[in-house]
Amino acid sequence: MIAPTFDADRHWRLHPQVAVRPEPFGALLYHFGTRKLSFLKNRTIVEVINSLSDHPDARSACRAAGIEDGDQAPYFHALGVLVQSQMLIADPGETP
């Protein structure tokens, strides 16, 4: 299966088989299906990921976390990596 390409204007959420464990440095994400482990080294990205399902798109989740539009590129990159590793999935009710 090919993972979708990250699009900041889509609605994303954590995969149902992913657990988030907060840590002093950020968080650990563990995917029980693929057995992959990801480290989030920034508390702001953890806040974005935890709030994705509350926002219509990733861009809005970043804005809600206080990330200005001009500063969102590194966060979008991190989210894209998580999409490729199947930690994040597009909302199944949304059409691309």
Rank of each mutant, 00 (worst) to 15 (best):
G33L: 12
E47Q: 13
D54I: 00
P22D: 15
G80V: 05
F25V: 12
K36W: 09
P22Q: 13
L79S: 01
H77Q: 12
V81R: 11
A8M: 11
D7R: 14
F6D: 05
A65Q: 05
T5I: 13
A64I: 08
L40P: 09
R21Q: 13
L29I: 08
I49N: 09
P4A: 14
I49Q: 08
A64M: 10
G33W: 08
T5M: 13
G26E: 10
E47L: 11
K41I: 06
E68T: 07
Q84V: 06
A90R: 10
S38Y: 08
R63L: 13
D7C: 00
V83G: 02
M1D: 15
R10G: 03
V46P: 08
P96V: 11
R13C: 10
P74C: 02
K41G: 15
V46L: 14
L79H: 02
L29T: 08
E47I: 03
Q86T: 10
V83K: 02
N42R: 06
I49A: 06
F32P: 03
K36S: 10
E68I: 01
G66C: 09
S60T: 13
V48E: 05
T5H: 13
R43D: 12
Y30T: 06
P4D: 14
R13Y: 03
H11A: 15
G26Y: 11
V20G: 05
T44G: 03
L79P: 00
N42T: 03
W12Q: 08
M87K: 03
P22S: 15
F6W: 02
Q84C: 02
H15F: 03
H31Q: 05
A27E: 10
G26F: 09
I67F: 03
V48M: 09
E94V: 15
A3N: 12
